[in-house]
Design a protein around this nucleic acid. Structure first.
Lengths: 152, 152
DNA sequence: GCATAATTGATACTCGGTTGCAACTAGCAT
DNA sequence: ATGCTAGTTGCAACCGAGTATCAATTATGC
């Protein structure tokens, strides 16, 4: 599931610094991993990739940096329907929100943007007077290939 | 957040038995707690309530019964934006799907049904050829009261 | 009733994530 | 450049949700 890489590198770092967040060697490393990721990574995958750049990085620092990014709304946290246990996955928050479909058979993750999705969020803000900060829509089922072959 | 209680009691039990699932004293107790719950419960709250009826029930049995109900599509699992740690919450699967809004300030959970939501799911089934089994849409933000008082 | 396959409860364990704290350091002021 | 200090790091110990194992128990079909 290659994510569209419309981000220039260093964007996360610049964004955090502009908000007065202190930039450490470890954070720079972790941010670069998040930015260059080609798929959704969980904390332990992130740690492994970060350690290939800086072997001294501790897992606690990864968790703390992810929390920081979440707090600043720069990454979104995904559960991907708990397809792989209780891990959480992370992705750079995109320009336009999308939803995730998880195939319960082959484990593939698909993304989907939709006007209806955007309109639904608009409706909620209006009708419920709810100020939306984060959205997470995940769907579990069978992808086109797996449904063709019949349920496992 | 009182859930609409349009269910007659014993419905879950009947549903499971009709599918050939063995009905034990413990299961009956847990099912009755799920059915009469007035809000979203997590596993440990469920255990506590079940133990008020049958003090011998073990937490493992609660977990196993929840897994059973999920497998049969009779309850939905919610994360409620991880507002309260990594717990999962459960609710009887409703006639018509709804989404959940979690107020990140006061912790209130709101539910919302919408034609746009239904249409969005239809669009996904059609355009992505994805066979939907479970849907989970959760929104984090500020409810009308909390946004009026300004962010915490 | 009986047989038997499924279920239960106890215990130990896994795993994702957090806390407390002493050592370190980014970033500012001088 | 140097020093100061609040913010950050790494370590180790911890927490809590959920799972595996297995002997003892029990629901259900005959």
């Amino acid at each position: 599931m290659p994510l569209p890489q419309t981000e220039q590198p260093g964007r996360l770092q610049a964004e955090l610094m502009s908000r007065g967040v202190r930039m450490t060697r470890q954070r720079r490393t972790i941010l670069s991993v998040v930015e260059t990721a080609q798929q959704h990574l969980d904390a332990s995958q992130l740690l492994r990739k970060a350690r290939r750049i800086d072997p001294e990085i501790d897992r606690v620092t990864v968790y703390r940096t992810l929390k920081l990014l979440k707090r600043h709304g720069l990454v979104d946290e995904l559960d991907l329907m708990h397809l792989q246990g209780e891990k959480h996955f992370y992705e750079r928050r995109p320009q336009r929100d999308h939803l995730h479909m998880a195939c319960l058979r082959c484990g593939k993750i698909l993304e989907f943007e939709s006007n209806l999705f955007d309109r639904l969020k608009g409706q909620i803000q209006r009708e419920c007077q709810f100020h939306i900060l984060v959205t997470r829509m995940e769907i579990g089922g069978y992808c086109s290939q797996c449904r063709a072959t019949g349920p496992a």
